[in-house]
């Protein structure tokens, strides 16, 4: 399953009310490390889409949400379960490192 785009309008339904865990990738076009980690998140989404939903939030377009969650570095990857942030990861990481961090959501 490919990643999808989330906006202020869809954040509530797609993230906060999701029945599966959701990883929100806070990113922007001009951020090199965001572009580097993007394809890795696509792969993880393809492989583990049934366990964890991966959505991308463009911090340029949806700055209100980024501010609400106190984002000051991108990429920031936050995992939401039942509307709560349960994990925060900052900075681009290689795939094995990301999978390790996400281990508990992928079983």
């Amino acid at each position: 399953m490919a990643t999808s785009k989330v906006t202020t309008a869809t954040f509530d339904a797609d993230v906060l009310k999701s029945s599966t865990p959701v990883l929100v990738d806070f990113w922007a076009e001009w951020c090199g490390p965001c572009r580097a980690v993007g394809p890795i998140l696509e792969e993880i989404s393809d492989e583990y889409g049934s366990k964890i939903k991966i959505v991308k939030l463009n911090t340029d377009e949806e700055s209100a949400i980024a501010i609400k969650y106190g984002i000051t570095s991108i990429p920031s990857m936050y995992v939401f379960v039942n509307g709560e942030v349960v994990k925060q990861m900052v900075g681009a990481k290689p795939k094995p490192a990301l999978l390790k961090e996400l281990e508990s959501f992928l079983v």
């Binding site: 951020c31 965001c34 980024a66 106190g70 000051t72």
Partner: peptide, 14 residues
């Protein structure tokens, strides 16, 4: 990631 950064081009915007 909460105010400490190593990448001005990534995070300056915030």
């Amino acid at each position: 990631g909460h105010g400490v950064s190593w990448c001005a081009t990534c995070d300056g915007f915030f």
